[in-house]
Simulated scan of single mutants.
Amino acid sequence: MSFDLGLSGQRALVTGGTKGVGAAVVASLLEAGVTVIAAARTVPSEEQHGLHYVAADLMTAQGCAHLAAVALDRLGGVDILVNVLGGSSAPGGGFAVLDDAEWEKELNHNLMPAVRLDRALLPAMIAQGKGVIIHVTSIQHILPLPDSTTAYAAAKAALATYSKSLSKEVTPKGVRVVRVSPGWVETDAAVAMAERLAAKAGTDYEGGKKIIMDALGGIPLGRPAKPEEVADLITFICSPRAASISGAEYIIDGGTVPTA
């Protein structure tokens, strides 16, 4: 049996598309024959066949509007929207150090870009009668780390709830909406964090990884996920092979969440 995903000729927009999971999603979709716009605050100057970069600050309404307009102009529409953008710069110290500015920053990083881009691009998807939206959330909306990720986890929980509600509204109109919730993923940023923790604890990189895994309550698989593994899952969900999947959440965390 052929396992052609049937994605050739599709048009996709991927946010956070130059690093980590986002870059892996872009590569996976390109390999499947998709034309991709990859967006980030800063982008490479050189493009390749089937790949266009757009620089935009998606933490602002203006940046989201600009990106949506460019995507519609360059591609004539979008079949796939993968909202990967996310992260946290909040300080450690629990709830007391999270002032209004920190809360607003986390929401503008992890919730509002998806809301704004969906709102801008969904009308065209509905008009064409088909489309797929992937919201990359996080297992931290289930397992928050109170010292440093309360606001991030709350923003991701809001994204998950919004995504579920949106799926109920637009799935009957031909647009599938799916959540993908990674655990710890071994991106360049995650490697750097493990190395910082290792240096502070006087151990090596593997020791730094163990510190992180212990903080998460352990990863039964024994290692973090790789960006390419998350990207392959997303690419499959985007494909006609997954045509019956909408409104669901897929956790990819090596077994970290003990009850899902």
Rank of each mutant, 00 (worst) to 15 (best):
I219W: 00
G94S: 06
Q140G: 05
W103V: 05
A160L: 12
A199K: 13
H49C: 04
I251D: 06
P146H: 12
C238E: 13
V177F: 07
I252W: 01
E249N: 13
T60L: 06
A68C: 02
D214K: 13
G77Y: 07
S8I: 02
I234P: 04
E31C: 07
I133C: 00
E186G: 06
E169F: 13
A190H: 06
D204P: 03
G63F: 00
A198R: 06
A242K: 07
P172H: 08
A101C: 10
G92H: 14
A260Y: 14
I134M: 01
Q128L: 03
P258I: 14
G16C: 08
A199P: 00
S8K: 15
A201N: 04
M125W: 01
S28Q: 11
I134E: 00
A69D: 11
L58Y: 08
G76H: 06
T18Q: 04
A32V: 10
A56T: 08
M213F: 15
D100W: 05
T235F: 11
D204M: 03
A114F: 03
E102S: 06
P182Q: 13
I251M: 09
A23S: 03
P91Y: 12
T161S: 15
I37C: 08
D214T: 14
M59Y: 04
S138C: 07
A215G: 09
K173C: 02
R179K: 15
V180H: 10
E206M: 06
A248F: 11
P240Y: 13
L29D: 03
V14W: 01
S165V: 14
R241V: 09
E47Q: 15
V178G: 08
L197N: 04
G94A: 12
V257L: 14
A189W: 11
S45V: 08
G131S: 02
G20I: 04
I80T: 05
G129C: 06
G16K: 04
T35G: 12
L111K: 07
G77I: 11
T161E: 10
V14L: 05
V78T: 05
L122K: 02
L51M: 00
K168L: 14
L122D: 00
G92Y: 12
V177M: 08
P146D: 04
V177D: 10
I80A: 02
S148E: 14
K19R: 15
P227V: 13
R74K: 14
V178M: 02
S88P: 02
A71R: 00
A71L: 06
D79P: 02
R241N: 09
V82I: 14
I252A: 09
S167R: 10
A61Q: 09
M112W: 15
G77V: 11
G208S: 07
T35M: 06
Y205V: 03
L233D: 07
R223S: 03
P240I: 09
L143P: 01
G63N: 11
E102Q: 15
I211L: 15
A40I: 07
A124T: 12
P220D: 06
F3C: 09
T42A: 08
A90N: 13
A260C: 14
N110C: 12
V230T: 07
K164E: 15
G63C: 10
E195K: 13
G6F: 13
A32I: 10
T18M: 04
A189M: 12
S181E: 14
G22W: 05
R41L: 07
A38N: 09
H141W: 06
I134W: 01
G20V: 04
I133Y: 02
G50M: 04
Q140A: 09
E249V: 15
F95W: 15
D118I: 02
Q140E: 11
N108V: 01
H49A: 15
